[in-house]
Design a protein around this nucleic acid. Structure first.
Length: 835
RNA sequence: GCGAAAGUGGCGGAAUUGGUAGACGCACUGGACUUAGAAUCCAGCGCCUUCGUGCGUGGGGGUUCAACUCCCCCCUUUCGCACCA
């Protein structure tokens, strides 16, 4: 008897798949296409359990879809630029490139040990010039179109990473990667104009409903943060620096008559001009400095006390002409809206608190019922809808109508207009780092900013650089790179030494897989429009706004540049956000020391067992705890199949899955097994290929295996019964093969079957096999289960009712009652209603 | 505060359209085999129990012949955003 030795078997079949290019694909096919993609990994060195789970989910789906008749694209690559490579280079005195490439080699072999069915011919790494040259081309096109621009502004600066960060990369005021508190620094940086697509990014979330988890859609919705309102100009009493007025953004123009002050952010560019020469200029300056010195976490914490200072300057109310004092406030954000707000303490809670603290007037202008009350007794602002009061000609209007009328009145005076604001900011893509894609522009002494010529691409990242003595990028000091000639005038120029954010690479890699080896163009239009969009994307929820928002933006931008088909609006049709793998209830992490090493698990149990456990432990979107007893259980199930197979060699014939017929299944025993077999084909097929509920697919196959054990014990010598058993075995191996492909290949070949089990079609469910001679009918009295009865399949309502009323259990429970109704659901139940 | 998801045995979870709640697995208990253990096989496994026309899917109401499932109110947990004007 041959023992189950996964390590031997797995190597053998991995080699067989590779040699036969079993999972290569092309876009020239008559089959319907299916593009399965898992978020590509950063080559950190080793696969962790989270990776394993992610790629197992994708692999089972890819294998199942392939068997179910789809032409499947299932590629993999490496998100290979990024800061950890530089940190590792410093630590181990090596080069980021060699560190990265050796990590890729290691992780690739770990993936191969897990038997993932990738089309390896499409593998890509974003740090290769063959990849990033196209990104540089996109940059130049973006520049032409005004989608990328340079701007000086206060930026999020991570002192530990020596680089700026995008807004999306600042989490709770700290760096998303190293968790150091982020500082603000004035810098000139490159920005991608993602805000130009704010509306479309928001609206197209509608297209994703049903395919994406609600919470991811909600998170993007909030992040984009659209609000409708008005911009209102308050004329300055004394204009400064050529500015006649200060603009504010408000969602409540209907409350404009309640303005009793105007608050500006201390960082507002006009502040310096306004306070110049005022009596308390020095005090104001002190206030500004103290706010600017506050770190971001402190400034944005909800407990921060609202503080402000009166400037002594005034604006004029745009409708009444009354003087309104200008204040500075620490709660006003310079980067949102206009950086200034109108203070309406009666109808805004923040303004209310501010007015109470600094004893500013509170004037009611909205009333629930039109009556006025004394605001001195109010405990909070009234923020609900109502009728306008104290508002001149607008009195008596409901406030929604009032919003429009006030804006119209302001427009007539050229002091306001309806507008919308987004929370979304443009994406800062400059990074003061070495290990990234160079930005293809130069700064010429004569011509200024000059884009590189397309024929000069790729602008290669130099590999010969000095090491990183102070943790900073060596590029500015690398003369061979930084010193260059101007593409326009040929004069002396300096190359841009910032590199691109690595999130730029991951914003388009999924389209490059469709033609990864094309050296002539970024995309082969035919292949691209055949494969895109991705049908199922799988990854962690931590990218809900980062990568997934950037990738959506890039898709729309490249579509509008003509790189993508016109109708490609969204890159990912369906998104599955997989849960985490926990150990003892908390996330596995190196620093905590609670790690399960995938390679050790493969050594101990084999890749098939690891795959099986990852998929059986919980539905894919939920977190699950790694347990030793759980993986033991998975191993036990595979052993159980192996033993059943070994012990049944004498009766097994190499018949196709689902090949037994009604003529073979003549006994009740055989009919039952055949029914179970086809139930599993249907259930596992839907669960694996459509619902992505792998745990229940596995449960269904376990039920079939359990049934086969019982069957074999009772099975006679009848050839029909034996055929039914062989067919069921073939079905187990076929339906389980997406999950545990190696063992299934081995048993498939031991069974004497032709070809690879991976190349088999998914067995057909014969609906007639699901129909049994009799059915169990539930018996209820007043909705409570009181028993069951066996009835011939297809028995009509009258027969079911009559039979039910004859049953002892029913009689017993209706003895002293009058039967009022009998509800019959054919094939299911009979409910006797009695009072 | 706003938004989202979730709450079912000792545990992970199942019930896809309102129709027999607890599939499948883990753990546990008893038995068989064994010198013994491991492995395996068989049986049991929601709770209460006065053994019933009992209770039971976070709690409370409702709709229905029938509710884990639909409606209303509430509680708890997790996650995301948050002085956004």
């Amino acid at each position: 008897m041959k023992r189950y030795t996964p390590q031997e078997i797995e190597l053998k079949w991995q080699k067989r798949w590779e040699e036969s290019h079993a999972f290569a694909c092309t876009h020239k096919s008559d089959k319907p296409k299916y593009y399965v993609l898992e978020m590509f990994p950063y080559p950190s060195g080793n696969l962790h359990m989270g990776h394993v789970r992610n790629y197992c989910i994708g692999d089972v789906l890819a294998r199942a879809k392939r068997m179910q008749g789809y032409n499947v694209l299932h590629p993999i690559g490496w998100d290979a630029f990024g800061l950890p490579a530089e940190n590792a280079a410093i630590k181990h005195n090596t080069h980021p490139a060699s560190w990265t490439y050796s990590n890729i080699a290691n992780m690739r072999s770990q993936m191969k040990r897990l038997g993932y069915s990738y089309d390896w011919a499409r593998e890509l790494a974003t740090c290769r010039p063959e990849y990033y040259r196209w990104e540089q081309l996109f940059f130049l096109k973006f520049l032409e179109k005004g989608l990328v621009y340079r701007k000086e502004a206060p930026q999020n600066w991570c002192p530990s990473c020596h680089t700026v960060l995008a807004n999306e990369q600042v989490v709770d005021g700290c760096c998303w990667r190293c968790n150091s508190p982020v500082e603000q620094k004035d810098l000139t940086q490159w920005f991608l104009r993602i805000t130009a697509y704010a509306d479309e990014l928001l609206e197209d979330l509608e297209l994703l409903k049903g395919g994406w988890p609600d919470r991811v859609i909600a998170m993007q919705h909030n992040w984009i943060g659209k609000s409708h309102g008005a911009e209102i100009a308050f004329p300055l009493e004394k204009p400064v620096a050529g500015q006649e007025s200060i603009s504010v953004f408000t969602t409540r123009p209907d409350t404009v008559f309640g303005v009793s002050f105007l608050t500006m952010a201390p960082e507002h560019p006009l502040v310096a001009e306004i306070i110049r020469g005022l009596p308390n200029e020095e005090k104001i300056q002190e206030f500004i400095t103290s706010v600017r010195n506050m770190d971001r976490i402190e400034r944005q914490s909800e407990t921060l006390e609202k503080q402000g200072i009166a400037t002594g300057a005034y604006v004029l109310h745009p409708l009444t002409g009354k003087k309104v004092p200008i204040w500075l406030g620490n709660f006003v954000i310079a980067s949102y809206g206009t950086g200034a707000v109108m203070g309406v303490p009666s109808h805004d809670q923040r303004d209310f608190e501010f007015a109470r603290k600094y004893d500013l007037p509170i004037v009611q202008v909205i009333s629930q019922d039109g009556s006025l009350s004394d605001t001195a007794s109010w405990e909070c602002a009234y923020t609900e809808a109502g009728v306008m009061v104290n508002s001149g000609e607008f009195d008596g209007l409901d406030n929604e109508t009032g919003k429009k009328r006030v804006v119209e009145a302001l427009e007539a005076k050229k002091l306001g207009r309806a507008t919308t604001q987004f929370r979304l900011r443009d994406w800062n893509i400059s990074r003061q780092r070495y290990w990234g894609a160079p930005i293809p522009v130069v700064y010429c002494e004569h011509c200024g900013l000059v884009p590189e010529k397309e024929e000069h691409l790729p602008i290669l990242l130099p590999l010969e650089v000095k090491t990183f003595p102070d943790g900073k990028s060596p590029l500015p000091a690398t003369a061979s790179f930084a010193e260059c000639t101007c593409p326009k005038c040929g004069g002396k120029a300096r190359r841009e030494t910032d590199t691109m954010d690595t999130f730029v690479e991951s914003s388009w890699y999924f389209t490059r897989y469709t033609c990864a080896r094309d050296e002539q163009e970024a995309f082969d239009k035919e292949a691209l429009s055949y494969w895109m969009p991705v049908d199922q994307y799988i990854g962690g929820v931590e990218h809900a706004i980062l990568h997934l928002l950037y990738a959506r933006f890039f898709t729309k931008a490249l579509r509008d540049l003509g790189f993508y088909p016109e109708n490609l609006d969204e890159p990912f049709k369906r998104l599955l956000t997989q849960g985490m793998v926990l150990l003892d209830g908390s996330k596995m992490s190196k620093s905590k020391g609670n790690i399960v090493n995938p390679e050790e698990m493969i050594d101990k149990y084999g890749a098939d067992t690891v795959r099986l456990f990852c998929l059986f432990a919980a539905p894919p979107e939920r977190d699950f705890d790694w347990t030793e007893s759980g993986i033991e259980g998975a191993s036990r199930f595979l052993q159980r199949i192996w033993r059943l197979f070994e012990d049944s060699q004498d009766v097994l014939e190499p018949v196709p899955a689902a090949s037994s017929t009604t003529a073979d299944a003549t006994t009740a025993l055989a009919k039952d097994l055949r029914c179970r077999e086809h139930t599993t084909i249907k259930k596992a097929g839907e669960d694996m290929g459509t619902r992505c509920q792998f745990n229940t697919a596995i449960a269904s196959i376990m039920e079939l295996v359990n049934a086969m054990y019982l069957y074999r014990a009772k099975m006679g010598t009848d050839p029909g019964e034996r055929k039914v058993f062989s067919s069921a075995m073939a079905t187990v191996l076929t339906t389980l093969s997406p999950i545990t492909p190696h063992m299934c290949e081995e048993l498939w070949s031991m069974m004497g079957q032709e070809d690879l089990v991976s190349a088999q079609k998914w067995p057909n469910c014969d609906e007639s096999a699901l129909v049994r001679d009799t059915q169990t009918i539930a018996l209820q009295v007043n909705g409570k289960l009181r028993g069951t009865m066996e009835m011939p399949t297809g028995a009509d309502k009258a027969a079911l009712e009559a039979a039910a009323l004859e049953q002892e259990q029913v009689k017993k429970f209706t003895k002293d009652l009058t039967i009022q109704r009998v509800i019959v659901v054919p094939g299911k139940l009979v409910n006797v209603v009695a009072r």
